[in-house]
Amino acid sequence: MKWSLAGAMIGALELCELAQVAEEVGFDGIAMPDSVFYPERVSAPYPYTADGKRMWSPETPMPDPFIAMAAMAAVTSRIRFYTNVFKLPLRDPLLTAKQVSTMAVMSRNRVALGVGLSWIPEEFTFTGTEMRTRGARTDEAIEIIKAVCAGRGPEWVEFHGKHYDFDALMISPAPEIPVPIYIGGHSEPGLRRAARLADGWMSVNTTKAELASAIDRLTELRDEYGRADAPFGVNVSPTDVRDLDGYRELETLGVTEIRVLPWYRYGVDVGDRQARLDSIRRFADEVIAQY
């Protein structure tokens, strides 16, 4: 089992220290969220709360994940960094591929890309992108990024799809090891996208029962797409598992990595920097070391 910290809603100036402590005590990764901006008015409900309201205020820090990951990679040597999740259809795939390939090389292959679609209509409107085609464009963008970051160094790539089309080009630097791509989300299209295109799947914050259902469906879909024997990671954030036995049960379900927020586990004031760091050390002693 691998263990990651969820780096959401932490001040930008605290992230590098957090990464150093997490690496020191044995965490394997840090997951960074993606939020381009906070619209004053949102015309769609937040899909992961019962009342459709977001759980954070407009001024909650959401540093750009790629910049944050690059900064944390510069002050660490082992721990990995990945997005959870990067709103890919809001961005140009070639520009994204350039950023990801550079981060992969400069971090010595310690980055991965977790991909999502975005549920906020205003994010598409205000960035001049189309929400209606977000799924199809994401599929094509994943193929483009996988081609650029295939793990063979710089090479000629071209792509001719419905939404993106370009002739042979080369992006350098490019990694010597493929950059893993994970898909987030519990919807049927999201699970199908993960089973068909990705190296793994990421859950939202949810219960063990919901995780078991999603993992069963992923198993069925991977078999359907002829990918049952391919390596596949399952990265989850369980809301009702808090002890070693529960974590071991998740492993038997097929979970390969667990994301945690130790400061919430121990009832720490999220604004207390030292208490947050202490909670990371405590979780490493009480869970990771014992596991």
Rank of each mutant, 00 (worst) to 15 (best):
G226R: 06
K146N: 05
I10M: 10
A284F: 06
F166G: 10
V234S: 05
R265Q: 08
R41Y: 12
F124H: 07
P121A: 11
A31T: 03
A150H: 13
L95P: 00
G185Q: 02
A150I: 09
V157T: 09
L253T: 02
L117D: 04
K98W: 05
T127Y: 14
S107R: 07
V100A: 04
A194S: 11
V148T: 11
A22G: 02
A104D: 08
L277D: 02
E123N: 15
A104E: 05
P154A: 14
P238F: 05
A19V: 13
W201R: 11
V21N: 12
Q274F: 01
E40F: 11
N109V: 03
A112L: 12
C149V: 10
Y291C: 02
A12K: 11
W3C: 04
R193A: 10
A74L: 09
W119K: 05
V42E: 14
V255Y: 02
F86D: 01
C149T: 14
K162R: 13
A174W: 06
R91A: 05
E257G: 03
E123Y: 12
E220M: 10
R259N: 14
P45E: 07
S57H: 07
L18S: 01
A31G: 06
V36D: 04
A74Y: 09
E59C: 01
P178W: 05
Y264H: 09
G26L: 07
G271I: 03
T138V: 08
L13R: 14
V236K: 03
D272E: 02
Q20L: 04
L191N: 03
S43P: 01
D34S: 12
V36K: 04
E123M: 14
G153E: 10
V148P: 01
P63H: 14
L113W: 12
G200I: 11
G267M: 03
V105H: 04
K208V: 07
V42K: 06
V204Y: 09
L218P: 01
P61F: 10
T76L: 09
D64V: 11
E257Q: 15
M106P: 00
D28L: 01
S187Q: 08
S107A: 13
D272H: 12
S172N: 14
V75A: 12
D139C: 07
R276E: 05
I215C: 01
S107W: 11
P47S: 10
A22P: 03
M106N: 11
L244Y: 00
A209E: 13
Y264N: 03
E122H: 08
T76R: 11
I142S: 11
A212L: 00
L18F: 08
T60A: 15
R242F: 15
K208E: 13
Y247C: 04
L18G: 01
R132M: 12
P93F: 13
D243L: 09
D34P: 09
G128K: 14
T252L: 08
R78Q: 15
P121Q: 13
